[in-house]
């Protein structure tokens, strides 16, 4: 085996980044296939572990998602406020904030928060199991780690992010309403009326579809980085870092493609 030439040139760095990126994407695709194969073997589906994961994920992320969503809604109202002030079209505020929250900003920010809270935690948990040989312990007990550990997490993250986004959307609108009154000084009724009049059902549903794909992406990314941890505590920290970064990239990319395909 020949040792690869180490260069510090900009181009060398760039090339290495690309090779690593492709290797990572390849490994994640493989993991995805293994998850689907395990999903097909429905008789091995671990009901207990899935319920535990659903519960853990929901409880862990609900408060932070609600708080984030409320401020994101508020932020969107303030951001549109500048244009409303310039044009005087106060009726547009509900439409602007509602569209932004439902279709783009809501799912993205709730997704990012979810990845920080649940995805990162998942990577840390799996990573710790790898460093302390608990994954190998499952294997010597004849239990398939993908079926037992990964599939329930995958399912739970998709289901939970879906519901969290739906709940988060409501809190975002509420946060927006309060800000509308408190910061912009516009009557809340105008804001709510604006949302109701603009018929945002399609945007709302698109946001939920995004949540499903974001949940799946975060699950695969965080499990991938967790399972390939090496080198003790430092390795776990680094894996968590890689996990949140990759999740963020995945969220922005997936988001773009869904919007383009949807509209």
């Amino acid at each position: 085996m020949s040792k690869p030439v180490e260069t510090d040139s900009f181009l060398g760095n760039f090339g290495r980044t690309f090779i690593t990126a492709f290797q990572t994407v390849g490994a994640m695709t493989l993991l995805q296939l293994r998850i689907f194969r395990s999903l097909l073997a429905i008789k091995n589906f671990d009901y207990d572990e899935s319920v535990t994961q659903l519960f853990k994920i929901g409880v862990r992320s609900l408060p932070v998602v609600i708080a984030t969503a409320a401020f994101v809604g508020a932020l969107m109202v303030v951001a549109s406020g500048n244009f409303v002030r310039a044009t005087g079209a106060t009726t547009l505020i509900g439409w602007a904030a509602g569209t932004a929250v439902f279709s783009e900003v809501g799912p993205i920010l709730i997704g990012l928060m979810f990845s920080g809270r649940v995805g990162a935690n998942n990577t840390a948990e799996l990573g710790t199991m790898v460093v302390t040989n608990q994954i190998d312990a499952l294997r010597v007990l004849g239990i398939n780690p993908i079926g037992y550990l990964i599939v329930p997490r995958f399912m739970a993250m998709i289901v939970m992010l879906f519901f969290l986004t739906a709940i988060g959307d409501l809190f975002a609108l509420t946060g927006g309403a309060i800000t509308c009154r408190a910061v912009l000084g516009i009557d809340m009724r105008i804001y709510w009326q604006g949302i109701l009049d603009s018929n945002l059902l399609s945007e709302f549903i698109m946001g939920l579809v995004k949540a499903i794909f974001f949940g799946g992406a975060i699950a695969i990314v965080s499990c991938h980085w967790g399972l390939q941890v090496t080198g003790g505590a430092r390795g776990v920290g680094r894996a968590v870092n890689d996990s949140v970064v990759t999740s963020a990239i995945a969220i922005f990319m997936v988001n773009f493609f869904i919007t383009v395909l949807w509209t």
Binding site: M113, E125, A233
Partner: peptide, 23 residues
């Protein structure tokens, strides 16, 4: 507490700073 603690700390850092930025 070991590698688990580092994982927790990293998670916490991400969540806290994301939320603080938005706030």
């Amino acid at each position: 507490g070991g590698s688990e603690g580092v994982g927790w700390a990293t998670t916490k850092a991400v969540v806290h700073s994301l939320f603080t930025v938005i706030l």
